[in-house]
Simulated assay, not measured.
Amino acid sequence: MNHNTPLPPASPRPLRHLSHDSRHRVLTAAQLRSHGVSPAETADQCRPGGPWQQLLPGVYVLHPGPPTSEERLHAVLLYAAREVTPSNGVPAQPDADGPHRPTYQEAMITGLAALTLHGFTSAPPLPSLEQIDILVPRLRRLRSTGCARVVRTASLPDPELVTGLPVAPVPRALADAVAGLTDAGAVRRLLSEAVRGWHCEPASVVRELNNAKLLSRPHVVDAVDSLLAEGRAIAEDRLYRMVIEYGLPDPVWNVDLRLPGGPHLGGLDAYWPEQAVAVELDTRAPRQGHRQDDDALWSEYARKREHLERLGITVVYITPKKLRDAMEQQAAVIRTALMASGDRDPAAYVVVLPR
């Protein structure tokens, strides 16, 4: 044999190699074919009492026992993921020869399974879920079957990688989970944990529930009301901690302002009378069927701010998300406003009352 002699085609690996490799015990029909396993051989391996099993259409578990939770998750993703076929004609799926780091196109875990992966203690453990929700684009031609329940969306969110798996962000996963729940207690516990566990802000949850048209369900509305109240309490606590941790002067907390003998100017979460600087938490959240109320609330915010600033009072609006993700930056904004007070004309005299 010289250098110009063509090499013989590579022999497929023996089937026992696939079965014994714990990294690759869930494969698609296309991946098996890339190993030289014909459809007839695959069918023979999956015969009753055989060493393999077909878990979902075109997806095989290469052992006879019950699949693990991890195997079910990978199987659902393999079933729903879009195959990208490069110019060589080989589907671009996880390579059974390489590291087990699949790239799943246009598919991600959502619903209760996603919340469990995000660490929610109020979500059921994975083995107890009969079906795993999988989020795909609306136009994908897939059907729910076996342990895979297809959830469609007009616009896929950017997935978050959790233990190497693409998982829907918490607000979207919550909406998909709540869509299938009728237990008011279970809905309330999930929404509460989302905020208490600092997974996301109430406004982002309400936005997704609104988009999913779930805010017409009474048990969801009740849970959202509790969520918003709890979210405001948590934001107030963060604001209090920010003042302490970053050494800001002590304000007066939760006050109403009035002109002497005049009208009510509005409530504030924190106020520094000597510097005439105010902080208000923006905890608005969109509500289905309440667009006019939302617009009216925003107009009220704007009117109050304009009125206070005409009186020489600087108003700083802070969202709960900014308090959570950029507390130091928000403290710097307030500190700058306090330091700049000496360069401004004195503010009008106002009466400060407890709220």
Results as ranks from 00 to 15, higher is better:
Asn2Gly: 15
Pro8Val: 10
Arg13Tyr: 08
Pro14Tyr: 04
Pro14Ile: 08
Arg23Tyr: 11
Val26Asp: 01
Thr28Ile: 06
Arg33Gly: 06
Gly36Ser: 04
Asp44Val: 05
Gln45Gly: 01
Gly58Gln: 04
Gly65Ser: 13
Pro67Tyr: 04
Glu70Ile: 09
Glu71His: 12
His74Trp: 12
Ala75Met: 08
Ala75Trp: 00
Leu78Lys: 02
Ala80Leu: 05
Ser87Asp: 12
Gln93Thr: 14
Pro94Ile: 11
Gly98Tyr: 07
Pro99Ala: 14
Thr103Glu: 10
Ala113Gly: 10
Ala114Tyr: 03
Leu117Met: 10
His118Val: 02
Ala123Cys: 09
Glu130Cys: 09
Ile132Asp: 02
Asp133Ala: 15
Arg141Leu: 07
Arg141Ile: 00
Arg152Ala: 03
Ala154Asp: 13
Pro157Ile: 09
Asp158Leu: 12
Gly164Lys: 12
Ala173Pro: 02
Ala175His: 08
Asp176Lys: 01
Val178Gln: 07
Ala186Pro: 01
Arg189Cys: 04
Ala194Glu: 05
Arg196Cys: 11
Cys200Pro: 00
Ala203Asn: 04
Arg238Ser: 10
Trp253Leu: 04
His264Leu: 14
Tyr271Pro: 03
Ala278His: 06
Val279Asp: 01
Thr283Asn: 13
Ala285Cys: 03
Lys304Ser: 08
Lys304Val: 10
Arg310Val: 11
Arg324Asp: 10
Gln329Ala: 13
Gln329His: 13
Ala340Gly: 00
Ala348Thr: 05
Val350Pro: 05
